[in-house]
């Protein structure tokens, strides 16, 4: 009953269609950022290592290596600031959270590509 009400509230703020991607995918996240008065699109690419939450609170985590240092960014899936998410490569993964990648460096961080 109260969950119904919550769904009604969240329905208005959710994107009607979210871009399809899975855990382990290499994605390009296009985010809108405001510079002065101009809006421009910034692209951040990396591996999706986790999805968490539900409804409007759903988030996904994208990990990449920048200058030898691991960087993770967490995006709200339904945020209007996230323009689109493009999946460029799929991988064979056996779990929902790829936190084990944090302990790996170099070649060990590679995931086997899954051809669709």
């Amino acid at each position: 009953m109260s969950q119904d009400l919550m769904n009604k509230v969240e329905a208005a703020y959710k994107k009607p269609e979210v871009d399809q991607f899975e855990i382990g995918d290499t994605v390009e996240v296009h985010t809108k950022i405001l510079e002065g008065n101009k809006e421009r699109i910034q692209v951040y690419s990396g591996t999706v290592i986790a999805r968490s939450g539900s409804g409007t609170r759903e988030m996904f985590t994208v990990r990449r290596i920048v200058g030898g240092e691991g960087v993770e960014k967490k995006f709200p899936l339904h945020s209007p600031k996230v323009d689109k998410v493009v999946s460029t490569r799929k991988s064979v993964v056996r779990r929902a959270k790829l936190y084990y990648l944090r302990d790996r460096v170099g070649k060990a961080t590679r995931l086997t590509e899954r051809r669709v």
Partner: peptide
Amino acid sequence: VGMTQVFDESG
């Protein structure tokens, strides 16, 4: 009913 989060006009 409970708590959640929503987005404003600027996201």
